[in-house]
């Protein structure tokens, strides 16, 4: 909408300017003649705007005092009034806004800096505690491990002793059983042999014979065994 309005203003200006281009030729000729005439008489360019027609064709950028004093006084008065009013109603508010915002931002930055320091200290404390806890845990772990190893060794030693005892006992039992079995086997073998020998000899083997045979057999078996 603003752009359309701006374009319309430009078009209006262009139209009016075009109209101004089409100025009256007679007026142009008159103006040219006027320029030539004024040039011939040596027109004073600084004569100001008292004569409006002079100002139309020959002007100076430095005004005469008659034309300049009023703007100067106006400039001073307007400036003093504006400075006075703005010094009371405008600049204090802007200064206040700038300073308060500056103080706020500075304060927030300082608070953030403090918070960062506190957070860093807390982090350091936490890391220190964590390191201590880890060291303690490691120490406990190592202690427990050592105790476990010791306990295991102790258990192993006990088990070894028990096993050795059991093995010895079992060995002894086996030996005893073996010996008993061998004795029984010998006895049965002698008895069987005696019975068989009696049947073969057709006579009764006496206890004395049996004893003698048994001893002889045992002696032979031992000999064979060795």
């Amino acid at each position: 909408m603003k752009r359309i309005a701006f374009l319309l203003i430009l078009i209006a200006l262009a139209t009016l300017s075009a109209k101004s281009f089409a100025s009256d030729p007679l007026h142009e000729i008159e103006a040219e003649i006027h320029d030539i005439a004024e040039g011939a008489v040596g027109h004073d360019a600084s004569s100001g705007h008292g004569d409006a027609h002079d100002g139309e064709h020959k002007s100076s950028v430095i005004e005469s005092p008659k034309a300049g004093i009023a703007p100067m006084v106006t400039a001073i008065l307007v400036f003093v009034i504006v400075a006075g009013i703005s010094a009371v109603g405008i600049w204090p508010k802007i200064v206040g806004g700038l300073d308060e915002r500056n103080a706020k931002i500075t304060g927030e930055i300082a608070a953030a800096e403090d918070a960062r320091k506190q957070a860093k200290e807390a982090l350091n404390e936490y890391e220190k505690n964590l390191a201590d806890a880890r060291a303690e845990a490691q120490q406990m772990l190592e202690s427990t491990k050592a105790q476990q190893i010791e306990l295991a060794a102790q258990l192993k030693a006990t088990a070894d002793v028990e096993l050795t005892a059991m093995r010895e006992k079992a060995k002894a039992d086996i030996d005893a059983a073996k010996k008993q079995a061998l004795n029984e086997l010998y006895s049965e073998s002698v008895t069987l042999a005696t019975v068989m020998a009696g049947k073969i000899l057709q006579r009764e083997v006496t206890a004395g014979d049996q004893q003698r045979l048994m001893e002889e057999s045992l002696a032979e078996m031992k000999t064979v065994k060795s």
């Binding site: 101004s20 281009f21 100025s23 705007h49 002007s59 950028v61 005004e63 703007p71």
Partner: peptide
Amino acid sequence: SSLTLGAGDPVAHVINHP
């Protein structure tokens, strides 16, 4: 002067006008 709308020279276009 047509473009500067009444001014006879460039200076007249920019000076103060009573």
